[in-house]
């Protein structure tokens, strides 16, 4: 039974957390509200609470968005990024999943050492190896190509580790039953292992999407042509243009931010489940 004191404490905790969450939400609310305003209104409202209130719905309500979408290539950049994310999700799940499966279930020499190396690679920041990636991609003549962008992004030690941690707890007898049902190793991976590990597949997919969507450094090095730019690079190109107003800048930032929020709110449960399940059993 919840006592009176516990009830009071719950209320206090809820209020404190609400205030804390508002504190984190203020910049987002401000961005969203002002993305619908002309620059004059943004400046006028800056010192009042109206800065967090969107303007009244009228004919110019969506003007910033319409201007950005019609006068720039922003839709193309968004579509580019969605395409890169989709390709990298599929390839990432297959490649990292197969690597994780091998580390979890297939016996081969120095397996544990390989795992150790992969775990060590997790602590190496992307920035330290990006020059090497760049040089390799340049030598291969793949600069400013989709392949040049995608190739170094496929293998991800963290994702391999996540997959390995989940696969290690899959029962071996299911594989044995599948063998008797004439299911080969690759078919087993795609028709049994991945469906049995939906939460980690969802986690890796979401992480990959967020990684691609938010990535700035690597695409800024690889892409030089406007046609292939990703959303973040496009955002930079648009906002650094002198003709872009503050309202338009905020509209672009809102459009870049919203998919991340949507994806995270839809898949937060799976992400938590996936990450938790990776620590459930050590092989």
């Amino acid at each position: 039974m919840v006592t009176r004191k516990q009830k009071r404490n719950n209320w206090i905790l809820t209020i404190v957390l609400l205030i804390a969450s508002l504190f984190f939400l203020f910049p987002v609310i401000w961005m969203l509200a002002n993305s619908f305003k002309p620059d004059a209104a943004i400046t006028a409202d800056m010192n009042s609470l109206r800065a967090f209130v969107p303007p009244i719905l009228n004919g110019s309500f969506l003007e910033n968005y319409i201007t950005v979408l019609t006068n720039t290539n922003f839709i193309r950049y968004m579509c580019n990024t969605l395409f890169y994310a989709a390709v990298l999700i599929v390839l990432g799940v297959v490649v990292n999943g197969l690597a994780g499966y091998a580390l979890a279930k297939i016996k081969f020499p120095f397996r544990e050492r390989w795992l150790m190396i992969i775990m060590l690679l997790m602590i190496v920041p992307m920035e330290t190896i990006i020059t090497i990636h760049f040089l390799i991609v340049a030598k291969l003549g793949l600069l400013n190509t989709v392949l040049g962008y995608i190739l170094p992004m496929i293998v991800n030690p963290f994702n391999i580790f996540l997959f390995r941690q989940v696969f290690v707890s899959l029962p071996d007898d299911v594989y044995e039953a599948a063998q008797l049902d004439r299911c080969g190793p690759l078919k087993y991976f795609f028709t049994m292992v991945l469906p049995m590990s939906k939460s980690v597949v969802a986690t890796v997919s979401v992480f990959t999407f967020l990684n691609v969507w938010n990535d700035y450094l690597w695409p800024s090095l690889v892409f030089t042509s406007g046609d292939l730019l990703s959303a973040q690079i496009g955002l930079n190109a648009i906002t650094s243009n002198d003709n872009t107003t503050t309202g338009q800048t905020l509209a672009v930032i809102t459009m870049v931010t919203i998919p991340v929020i949507i994806i995270y709110s839809f898949f937060s449960k799976q992400i938590v489940e996936g990450v938790i399940s990776t620590g459930s059993k050590e092989g």
Partner: peptide, 12 residues
């Protein structure tokens, strides 16, 4: 054909 101790059914 084999029947396993832990059933080994395909859960999905």
């Amino acid at each position: 054909s084999m029947v396993f101790q832990n059933y080994a059914l395909y859960p999905h």
